[in-house]
Every structure is written in structure tokens, then in C-alpha cells.
Simulated assay, not measured.
Amino acid sequence: MTRIDFELDRDYVELNQLLKLTGLCDSGGQGKQIVASGAVYVDGQQELRKTCKIHAGQIVRLEDVEIRVVSA
């Protein structure tokens, strides 16, 4: 499994934007499609809300990639 530490420099980041900012997709729109497909998990639970607010301390998983969101 690949792990990515994402430093959050604000209160939250929207899930589709997180996928874009970490390089897992090319655009926010593509991020929305990935979330809608049911492939994204937040803290172990499937997440279907495309603009779900992700805060520091949460873990996002897409296939074999784990994104740990940490405070900047």
C-alpha cells in the first residue's frame, strides 16, 4: 500500500479536491466521478459525498493508496 501524507493548511479540504491535490486524478471533476463510483473510503467507511469535508487526522483510501491528512 502506498501512503501519502497531505499537509492541510486550512480547516478542511473537499474530498474531490484532495484526490486532485494528491495527484490521484487530474481534475476536481474527475475526483467527483471517482467518489461517486464508490471507490473512496474515509476512516474505513465508504464515502459517496463528493464534497465531503476532510479534516486533519482523517485517513482517505482509494484502492491501494492511503492518504493521511495531517495539520501543516
Rank of each mutant, 00 (worst) to 15 (best):
M1V: 08
H55Q: 08
E47K: 02
A72M: 06
D43C: 04
L18W: 03
G29R: 03
E66G: 06
V13K: 01
L19D: 01
Y12A: 10
I4C: 05
E47M: 09
R10Q: 15
I34R: 04
V13G: 01
S27L: 00
L19I: 04
S37R: 11
M1W: 06
Q46C: 10
L15A: 08
G29C: 01
G57I: 13
V69C: 07
C25E: 00
V35E: 02
L21D: 13
Q46S: 14
G57R: 04
R10T: 15
Q30P: 01
R49Q: 11
G28W: 00
E63F: 08
L18M: 06
L24G: 00
H55S: 12
E66H: 11
D9V: 13
D43K: 01
Y41R: 13
T22V: 12
D43W: 06
Q46G: 07
D9W: 10
S37A: 11
R61A: 11
I4M: 07
V40K: 00
L19Q: 01
A39G: 07
R68S: 15
E66D: 06
R10I: 11
Q33W: 03
C25I: 00
L24C: 02
Q46Y: 06
V60Y: 01
E66I: 07
R49H: 10
L21P: 05
G44V: 05
I59S: 12
A39H: 08
D43P: 00
F6N: 09
G44L: 12
G28S: 07
Q45E: 14
R61P: 08
Y41C: 09
K20H: 10
D26S: 09
L15Q: 02
E66Y: 11
I54Q: 00
A56N: 06
I34M: 04
K20W: 08
G23K: 03
Q17I: 12
G31F: 03
I54W: 05
T2C: 07
L18Q: 06
M1K: 09
R68G: 08
L15E: 04
D11Y: 05
L62H: 10
L21E: 10
R10S: 15
K50Q: 12
L48N: 12
A72G: 14
G31T: 02
M1L: 13
D43L: 05
R49Y: 05
G28Y: 01
A39R: 09
E14D: 12
F6Q: 05
I34P: 02
N16S: 14
I4Y: 07
E63W: 10
V69F: 01
V69W: 03
I67W: 02
D9S: 15
K53V: 10
A39Q: 14
S27C: 03
E66S: 11
V60H: 08
T51K: 11
Q30C: 00
H55F: 14
D11T: 14
E63Q: 12
C52R: 13
Q58L: 09
L8I: 07
I67Q: 01
D11C: 03
R49D: 09
T51N: 13
I59C: 10
S71V: 11
K53M: 08
L48I: 10
I4N: 10
G28L: 02
H55P: 08
N16P: 06
T51Q: 13
D43S: 02
Q58P: 06
